[in-house]
Design a protein around this nucleic acid. Sequence first.
DNA 1: AATTAATATGAGCAAATACTCGATTTACCA
DNA 2: TGGTAAATCGAGTATTTGCTCATATTAATT
Lengths: 246, 246
Amino acid sequence: MPSITKRVPSGRTSKAPGKPTDKRSAKAKQSTPKAATGRRVALPNAARKRPRQARARATVDAILEAAARVLVEEGYEGANTNRIAEVAGVSIGSLYQYFPNKQALVSALVERHVRHIMDLLGSGLMTAASLPLPEGIRRLVQVMLDVHRLEPELHRVLAEQLPRISTPDHHRQTNTTAQAMIKGYLEQRRAELRPGLDLETVPFILVHSVEAVTHAAVIEQPETDPERLVDEVTAMIVAYMLPHPH
Amino acid sequence: MPSITKRVPSGRTSKAPGKPTDKRSAKAKQSTPKAATGRRVALPNAARKRPRQARARATVDAILEAAARVLVEEGYEGANTNRIAEVAGVSIGSLYQYFPNKQALVSALVERHVRHIMDLLGSGLMTAASLPLPEGIRRLVQVMLDVHRLEPELHRVLAEQLPRISTPDHHRQTNTTAQAMIKGYLEQRRAELRPGLDLETVPFILVHSVEAVTHAAVIEQPETDPERLVDEVTAMIVAYMLPHPH
DNA sequence: AATTAATATGAGCAAATACTCGATTTACCA
DNA sequence: TGGTAAATCGAGTATTTGCTCATATTAATT
């Protein structure tokens, strides 16, 4: 059978105008058992076609925007592509013009979100670099809290689905990058740290601890006093990393 | 008996504990447009019928066992009731004899798992109670790690889905219970703690930090040295909570 | 043995949903 | 102005999947 399922010639969106590689005999409803339509999956991620005109770019934006809204309002399972297209005010066909499948759409959303977070974290580290260590750490904790408070609902849904969507590799790498950034920061301040602190393990602990606490604070207990929480978490980290005044 | 079913508009489950309000004349394939079958949802959780004979109990066990396996192997979305029944070696009809719907099945699994965790945590606290504080804390961290290493894959899948399955209330309550246990433990040891420590915020931070770190350690970095991790996390908590030797 | 209750079966249905494709509209440019 | 490429449209389709129900089988009870 002509496996049209994963065409998208190597993702290359070259114009190749009159080159419809797939001929696909008209209809042939029964002949191709699992070919024609239904549930399948093309290349994940890679956009099928890149928008070249302004209005196309607007369409893509509208789709992403709508996807975020629907995802937040209906959850991942309740979010179907037809609905997303409807909310975006475009036809389902347009959606599939730019995203080869549902996963790719969500992936794009995740990438955008992660990029945003990493940017914040990066600039937070810049600020922290010029501060005394305790203040610097406080700044970083604050940044993490801000990250979560930015779009808490979207963050929650994406965070839940992230392990499933992105490849484990990609997920791990994002995490590793964050840890590497923290590690770099700590190495610069090594002189101020408690001697013997394990700079391999510490970033791992910090990233996950702070992420979890801020996440939970935003999701579960929005009424918690943010200042107090930041103070406490900072205190914990400082007590752990700085030399004990002994 | 009249089927205790209730159609649900979209994927979202209404928690309304509806009564068997619908009469539903038998069959009438066409007359009841959206009545007969398809996607619907009955009362969540509550088992439809309780097994009275030994073989029925065996069936229920087999179903739960199979559900866990399939959930781990295929993920939540890939796990469908027909497959679970097949793996369990029972018919789909039998499955629905004891679980009114898919959610109820997963809920049962979650409940079992949570009970298991709380038991471990409880007995861990018992042990910790008779130890000096630093050792006690180390013990608790170790217990959390053990919890995750028990059935890491199942834990991951359930943890991902938990916010969606159980009601937010139930989820929060489980968490609150854990925090209350920790709080009780700390209050007993108040004399040994740093004065001025906020016993409202600390359990929140501890539970989420330790949970996240141990979770990540098991899921993302199975090769990490567990001893070292437990040591570090313990050190962090101790440095935070005990009085600084100043 | 006969009757009843509990348990098990599985073919089949209705709804949901990801995705296609031929046709139409809009922008671009020589 | 006309030609062509880009963008849009949306009805239709193949699958999947949660779940029912009439019927069959096994165990408890009389």
